[in-house]
């Protein structure tokens, strides 16, 4: 050594980096990815691959050639967005749908605001919602994919929530609908229901959640407050009229509530910083989701709920600050 390095303190750094955090999220997503590939087969692989490739490629191109900076794909955030977007798409979606989703997620939602950390809305969800509104037919058709395991009946034509909504609209009671379709909670836990790639297995998502908690990547407050709110809200309505309102467990296990609560609502950039703020945020998501499910025209409302609550984050951050030391 000839020149002494001089810098202000501290002189050491925790090993945590943006990249390591994102890598942990990718690892936490793996169980869901594996389950969706097992159950939906090659079509799930195509959706995953195209979504990830387009997201990463787009971020690379935009940072290098549009913003003329060093590429930021090394932080793996585009990879995470790609995977989450894929898990939000039906496995039968064609590759170009994934590409449009990637353009909206990375190009519009993330990079126009200045890249990672600057966006107001969660990129993957914005991408999904855009697709849902633009291509409702593709986005709500689930049948036709042949999985590596499980029979043809493993995949039904619509999501349980869609079936219920449809049935209720036709004037049926829930018991009649259930009798027709034979849902069981066991199926929902172990990926035996129709739904977008990420929705089908609650167990896989819970494994990911536990991993994220153990690695201290996220704090549990947002996820738990979403789930508790959904359960309580639906519980009240279910107790009032069990023939018209679905029960809490059904609501928790279907329609991406788990996927959203674990992976999308907890996105650092678009969620509040403080625990108190996180609880308000989670409760908001839960209530909005259930309002849409019970009274809205869409069968499920998790994505909309998260987007709506994303927009309140700056406000929540402003009012929910950590208690400062020595200030009563």
């Amino acid at each position: 050594m000839n020149k002494l390095l001089v810098s202000p303190s501290p002189h050491i750094h925790s090993k945590t980096s943006t990249r390591s955090l994102m890598l942990d999220v990718v690892i936490a997503l793996l169980p869901s990815v594996i389950v969706s590939v097992l159950f939906y087969g090659w079509s799930a692989v195509v959706v995953l691959a195209s979504s990830v490739v387009f997201c990463v490629l787009l971020e690379y191109l935009i940072t290098r050639y549009l913003m003329k900076q060093a590429s930021t794909i090394g932080d793996l955030s585009a990879l995470v967005t790609g995977i989450i977007l894929a898990l939000n798409l039906p496995p039968t979606a064609p590759w170009w749908v994934a590409m449009i989703g990637a353009v909206v997620a990375i190009g519009v939602t993330k990079m126009t605001f200045g890249g990672l950390g600057q966006n107001v809305f969660n990129p993957a969800i914005t991408g999904r919602v855009f697709l849902l509104i633009s291509f409702p037919a593709i986005m709500t058709t689930w049948g036709g994919a042949k999985g590596f395991i499980g029979g043809a009946d493993a995949v039904s034509g619509a999501t349980p929530l869609g079936i219920v909504k449809e049935g209720l609209a036709q004037g049926m009671t829930l018991d009649q609908i259930y009798a027709m379709h034979d849902f069981s909670y066991g199926q929902m836990l172990f990926a035996n229901i129709g739904g977008s790639a990420g929705e089908i297995s609650a167990i896989a998502i819970i494994i990911g959640f536990i991993y994220l908690l153990a690695r201290k990547v996220i704090r549990p407050y947002i996820t738990l407050s979403v789930l508790v709110t959904v359960a309580v809200f639906s519980g009240i309505f279910w107790l009032i009229d069990p023939t018209q309102y679905t029960d809490p467990l059904f609501n928790l296990l279907t329609g991406g509530v788990l996927l959203g609560a674990v992976f999308m609502a907890t996105d650092y950039v678009t969620s509040p910083m403080s625990d108190k703020g996180g609880i308000i945020f989670g409760v908001g998501i839960g209530i909005i989701t259930m309002l849409i499910r019970y009274f809205g025209s869409y069968p499920e409302g998790m994505s909309f709920a998260i987007l709506i609550m994303n927009s309140t984050v700056p406000l929540i951050n402003k009012f929910c600050k950590q208690k400062k030391f020595g200030r009563a």
């Binding site: 020149k3 002494l4 390095l5 001089v6 810098s7 202000p8």
Partner: peptide
């Protein structure tokens, strides 16, 4: 002659 190397903001 430079004798130190700065590594901060």
């Amino acid at each position: 002659p430079v004798v130190n190397d700065y590594d901060g903001l």
